[in-house]
Measured scan of single mutants.
Amino acid sequence: SISSRVKSKRIQLGLNQAELAQKVGTTQQSIEQLENGKTKRPRFLPELASALGVSVDWLLN
Rank of each mutant, 00 (worst) to 15 (best):
E47N: 09
W58S: 03
Q33E: 15
S55F: 04
V6P: 02
V6I: 10
G25D: 04
A18I: 10
L20K: 01
Q22C: 10
I31H: 02
K38F: 15
S50H: 12
S50T: 12
E19K: 05
N61Y: 14
L15S: 04
S30T: 10
G53F: 06
V54M: 06
S30D: 14
Q17V: 12
Q28W: 11
Q17D: 03
L34F: 07
F44V: 03
W58K: 02
G53W: 04
S1R: 09
V54I: 06
R10Y: 01
E19A: 09
Q12S: 15
T27L: 06
A51F: 08
Q17K: 08
K7H: 07
S3D: 06
Q33P: 01
A51C: 06
W58C: 03
Q28L: 15
N16A: 09
K38C: 13
R5C: 05
W58T: 03
F44G: 04
T27C: 07
L48T: 02
S30W: 15
L15G: 01
S55G: 08
R43S: 14
R10P: 01
Q33H: 12
Q29M: 12
A49Q: 01
L59P: 04
Q22V: 11
A49F: 01
G37T: 04
A18Y: 14
N36T: 11
S55W: 04
L20S: 00
E32T: 08
N36S: 14
I2P: 04
S50C: 10
L59N: 00
P46K: 15
L59A: 00
R43W: 15
K40I: 13
R5F: 06
K7V: 10
R41P: 08
P46G: 11
A49S: 06
Q17N: 04
V56P: 08
G37I: 03
R43V: 12
E47R: 14
N16K: 09
W58V: 03
I31S: 01
L45A: 06
R43L: 14
S4R: 11
T27R: 06
S1F: 11
A18V: 09
V54F: 03
Q12W: 08
G53A: 06
N16M: 07
E35K: 02
N61A: 12
K40A: 13
S3P: 07
E19V: 06
Q29W: 15
I2L: 15
S1E: 10
S8F: 15
T39L: 15
R5I: 07
Q22R: 13
P42N: 06
L48G: 00
L34Q: 01
G37D: 07
G25W: 03
G25L: 04
R43Q: 12
